[in-house]
Design a protein around this nucleic acid. Structure first.
Lengths: 259, 259
DNA sequence: GGCCAAATGCTTGATTCTGCTCGAAAATCA
DNA sequence: TGATTTTCGAGCAGAATCAAGCATTTGGCC
């Protein structure tokens, strides 16, 4: 197991449990305790965790936010969804991407789309997600516009009033929303109200709104509402979505793509 | 199999799996490990992936932040300079970082500064460099403010009027400039006029201005001027800087640190 | 066909990583 | 306080990986 994979696993276990012992981690990952100690020391040097005698604890008091670091769940569904979303974008358009694992996959799918390969800015991408901007920045076929703002703690999303100001100055063709819940009556929702506010603004500036959500997100609710279902034009989800669920979305006037 | 086809396959496999090992890829494509290593190196140079020992990972998901990046020229000078610059920042301050390899090292040096370890936002970092924001975003000890704007082609710097608007709303304690040339009479300069404009704005919002430049940058000129030498409070450079050069900066009222 | 440049594969010396051992320091318990 | 146990840190050897150089092959071009 490479060091990258080991570090990733260690951080995952750590945010999940809050604290991790050397021997415990060594047994779990199948490496020696000495290696784990070295890993802990190196991660501690980078302030990714705090060493304790015999183990390590998460840095600071943030016992929350496990999701960003989890190995993406439902990876293959997400990739299929991402591919389908990418195909909804025409060359030359301006597309807005919110943060999240699904939208990150959309960004990657856009990056490998052959018909965008050449031509100067074949696509304009507007995003408040640092990781997406960072991945696409060096590709010559993209023009990347970043909203600015304050990074949400331990996350890659930019939020806050600074971002609002920038978004007010642009319009886009299609907004792709990564959501934590999407329902006909409750609409699309995010975990954080500031995040939801940015996403809402992005929707308002867009001619078309696409929600990318695997089937586990459908029909649920979450704390911060982004927009009502009527604002959404297209939903892309996986084929595990129930027939009844799909029908209700379609009755609400939303085009549903299942992949 | 041609190199193009090989690169295409490698990137496809990489996007699909997230990470790829040298031997694994060599076996899969039927070429030698040396070729794969060269391919990985070349693709990494183009920022299409991130090299790790024994393999490569998708660009953007690596935790191996400061370790693999030893490839930059004058790496050790840059790291010493970066360390010294980081020590000029007091806990709780707001520091502005422009783009560039030297300032990226400053960001990494700040990340490993022990006295910032705890306390909520121990440091506020304002930057227009996507790579810096991305690296620091997950550290709980930093509050990251991104200027927004359009990514400069093939680079990580955000530029343009959108960034101006955001910078106008904030002030910072210390601005760290990465420059391509710095001279007593010609001032500090960058390669690109839009980049210089952002850097200038950052200076104007700062109480203190620090220029981080290795000795090869001193005494030269470059296309786009950022600010006159009088605007700079401190210059941090390496000990290879000529005595006469240093003296002239000091006579201009600039504090010079050589490391 | 002959030539040149680029790409590929192989070898070698150096670097890095990992696991193990041993003495020292720290924590626990009596 | 003192004894015991656990953990740490450093050093070392083996294995894996890397970088560089060199020979061979491939492919284009005249």
């Amino acid at each position: 197991m490479s060091r990258d994979a080991r570090w990733k696993s260690l951080l995952e276990l750590l945010v999940e449990r809050g604290r991790l012992e050397v021997e415990e981690a060594a047994a779990e990952l199948g490496v020696s305790a000495a290696t784990i100690r070295r890993d802990f020391d190196q991660l501690a040097e980078q302030q990714m965790l705090v060493r304790t005698r015999g183990g390590a604890v998460v840095h600071g008091v943030s016992y929350e936010l496990p999701l960003r670091y989890k190995t993406a769940r439902r990876a293959s569904e997400k990739q299929r969804i991402a591919k389908a979303v990418a195909d909804l974008v025409a060359p030359g358009e301006a597309v807005g991407l919110t943060g999240g694992t699904t939208t990150t996959e959309v960004a990657r799918a856009l990056a490998v789309r052959g018909d965008l390969a050449s031509g100067s800015p074949a696509l304009t991408v507007v995003t408040n997600a640092l990781n997406i901007a960072n991945e696409l920045a060096v590709r010559p076929q993209f023009k990347i516009v970043v909203t600015g703002g304050v990074a949400r703690p331990q996350s890659y999303e930019l939020i806050g009033p600074l971002a609002d100001g920038v978004l007010g100055q642009i319009t886009i063709d299609v907004a792709v929303l990564g959501v934590v819940a999407f329902d006909v009556t409750h609409g699309a929702a995010a975990n954080d109200e500031a995040e939801a506010a940015i996403n809402r603004l992005l929707c308002e500036r867009a001619a078309r709104v696409v929600v990318a959500a695997d089937s586990s997100k459908l029909g649920g609710r979450a704390f911060a509402r982004i927009c009502p279902a009527e604002s959404v034009d297209t939903l892309v989800t996986d084929s595990a979505a129930g027939k009844e669920t799909v029908r209700r979305f379609e009755e609400a006037g939303i085009r549903v793509l299942t992949v």
